[in-house]
């Protein structure tokens, strides 16, 4: 008589579909309920209304919230501003990360390469709020930035959109450096040698071989920097002065007008979906 465990193992071995179902049903249930379920609730609640007098939610199916978001210039401006900030952060991070990752992966000696990697990764362990407030201190009147820039006739940009862009660029930079670092590291030396061998000068090799091969990594990094900036609501509160972004519009509406907050939060979700669809055609998603 075979022990029951062995019989079960045998049965699973003969039925690969059953095996697969047993393996992934729990995580799939979690994904469906907790993750997609929350998104569905978000979408559904956007069609409800808040009673202006009682502040209670009326479960009446209507599209007023979406109409408000689409027609009210306030929301349109906030959306465009958020988009602009996210784009600027992504661009700045790409420009900084490119030479940085190149140096780490292809120029630095193994020892300093490890040190640089640690230097890039360490800030990820520090708390978000700590870093944001550290920047608040640096950017404030009479702070470090003022002190450094004063001899050049400059000063801190103060609290506003530039400060938000600077701090967000700082916060998400590692997410751009790491995929680029990997891409540069995996770039075979022989491809660069082959390009030179075929008569290409370094700049030509860079444009014709290096750039196209690391482009997917830039796009992968930009998905992080872009979507994280798009959803951010704390940095803008700390160093943004009076600046409004989609994130803090949503945050401030959650308690007052949940259906409207839900409708507003559909905007970044749609932008990200559109971005991912555009990016998918470049093949960058295969490298995530």
């Amino acid at each position: 008589m075979t022990p029951p465990v062995r019989r079960l193992a045998g049965a699973l071995h003969r039925r690969p579909r059953l095996r697969l179902a047993a393996l992934i049903s729990a995580p799939m249930a979690w994904l469906a309920l907790a993750y997609l379920g929350a998104l569905v609730v978000l979408l559904v609640s956007a069609f409800w209304t808040t009673n202006e007098f009682t502040s209670n939610i009326d479960y009446l199916w209507n599209t007023d919230n979406f109409r408000t978001v689409l027609t009210d210039p306030l929301y349109r401006n906030v959306a465009l501003r958020t988009l602009g900030i996210a784009a600027a952060v992504t661009l700045i991070d790409a420009v900084i990360a490119f030479p940085m990752a190149f140096y780490m992966a292809r120029v630095a000696r193994p020892r300093s390469r490890r040190l640089l990697l640690v230097a890039v990764l360490t800030p990820l362990w520090a708390g978000y709020l700590v870093k944001a407030y550290a920047w608040w201190v640096m950017l404030s009147h009479g702070g470090v930035i003022d002190w450094i820039a004063a001899p050049f006739g400059g000063g801190s940009p103060g609290f506003g959109i530039p400060a938000v862009v600077i701090v967000l660029s700082y916060l998400w930079l590692p997410y751009m450096i790491l995929p680029l670092y990997t891409a540069f590291e995996q770039l075979p030396d022989s491809l660069l040698a082959a390009s030179g061998d075929l008569g290409a000068r370094p700049w030509r090799t860079f444009v014709g071989v290096v750039l196209p091969l690391v482009k997917p990594a830039v796009i992968a990094g930009s998905i992080f920097t872009f979507s994280l900036s798009l959803g951010d609501y704390l940095t803008v509160q700390i160093v943004g002065g009076t600046t409004q972004m989609l994130g803090n519009v949503i945050a401030s509406n959650v308690t007052l007008n949940l259906p409207l907050a839900a409708a507003v939060s559909c905007v970044p979700v749609l932008i990200i979906v559109g971005y991912l669809l555009a990016v998918r055609r470049t093949g960058a998603l295969d490298n995530l």
Partner: peptide, 20 residues
């Protein structure tokens, strides 16, 4: 002289074809 200034070409061991 740098490789791009020499009138020689190389067939590499791993072929080094440009994948893109």
């Amino acid at each position: 002289l740098a490789p791009f200034d020499r009138d020689v070409n190389t067939v590499f061991q791993d072929y080094a074809l440009f994948p893109h």
